[in-house]
Design a protein around this nucleic acid. Sequence first.
DNA 1: TGTACATCAGTGAACGCGCGTTCACTGATGTAC
DNA 2: TGTACATCAGTGAACGCGCGTTCACTGATGTAC
Lengths: 202, 202
Amino acid sequence: MTQPEQKPYHHGDLRAALLDAAEQELVARGVEAFSLRSVAKRAGVSHAAPAHHFGDTGGLLTALAADGFRRFLGFQLRREASASADPVSQLAGAGLGYIDFAMAHPALFRLIFTSARINREDPGFLAVAQASYQHLLAITRTAGGNDSDIPAVWAGAHGLADLLMSGQLPALARMQPADRDRALAAAMKRSFPSGAHRPDST
Amino acid sequence: MTQPEQKPYHHGDLRAALLDAAEQELVARGVEAFSLRSVAKRAGVSHAAPAHHFGDTGGLLTALAADGFRRFLGFQLRREASASADPVSQLAGAGLGYIDFAMAHPALFRLIFTSARINREDPGFLAVAQASYQHLLAITRTAGGNDSDIPAVWAGAHGLADLLMSGQLPALARMQPADRDRALAAAMKRSFPSGAHRPDST
DNA sequence: TGTACATCAGTGAACGCGCGTTCACTGATGTAC
DNA sequence: TGTACATCAGTGAACGCGCGTTCACTGATGTAC
């Protein structure tokens, strides 16, 4: 028999509950309609409670973005782990994880990359953004590339993710996941360091 | 001697004036703070006037997006016109125009591609979006590609534009325009149809 | 073990603000005769 | 050419709403002694 849920004055973990509610709110109503009051309502607390933990709307969105960014990086790492070990497959895996995340969590993807409402100088956000960039740099180097390859490699994955997510590549969107992954990987590989995708060219 | 500006009751071309004001407002305060009232204030008319021409906020933003999209396509065509006639240069020109527009008008670029506040089913918007896609398809075919090349080609330009615009490729952003164009063109050409960028491979 | 007190988390009423929408209106323009 | 009338563009007051912020408060928790 569960307790009759007579809710205690103190929440216990309101910060985490607010982040959950904030993500739901973001997904349901978009960043443009996002407000502290609507999040508080969704979390079932008084409207002044969020300010206690996050200061203002920007603070809450920034915390949500940093948290989302960690999961975004996680998508990439998981895809790499399940790919074969050669550098090109690793790079393609990271790209597919990148795209997967955008498709699975479009609202978070947009929040992270394009919202004017988050503070990209926030230490928590900055830390994961830099870790993510360093990771991209590392696997690009392993695949025979250098810093000047980054724009093309990153843009390939980012462009596909952004266009797919916003419904602008319907032919790809309609494919079965396995087929789509093959097509996406082929498209991305064009942008990989040339030493990597033409190993026989020497 | 100019007229003493005793403003007439009828504006004359309020629709165009509101679009101008809307773009200024979008640039200055972002799509998230955009409202009919703020646009009316900027245009110097009563706050109920915009509804007369555009219905609601979405209607005004959609009209602005359609107009912006036409200028966006114009950027591409102009760059193509000043490029050499070979298909690869034409495709690169279109891509550079694409990126130029994003750098010159980031707020419009975002409005067009990612705002949830515009109606992408609007006939005016749809028309220019489809014309733009058809143009991309045509120049890709001329360069020896087919429909399956579109995702890579488009994503290359789009990804570079989006990342550059949001300040995520600082090394490229710091370059002189001519150098940057060369680097961008080289990055994009990797994604072009393989018949085009390796003409000697047969 | 008990008591006193400080600190902290969350409440709820109140405020002023900008918003979209409605509505009766006013001034200008076009058209019928 | 003149007059009457319909139509259209824009006004400005009023409304209700959700917002962020403030503030005195209440209940829970931790700590000193």
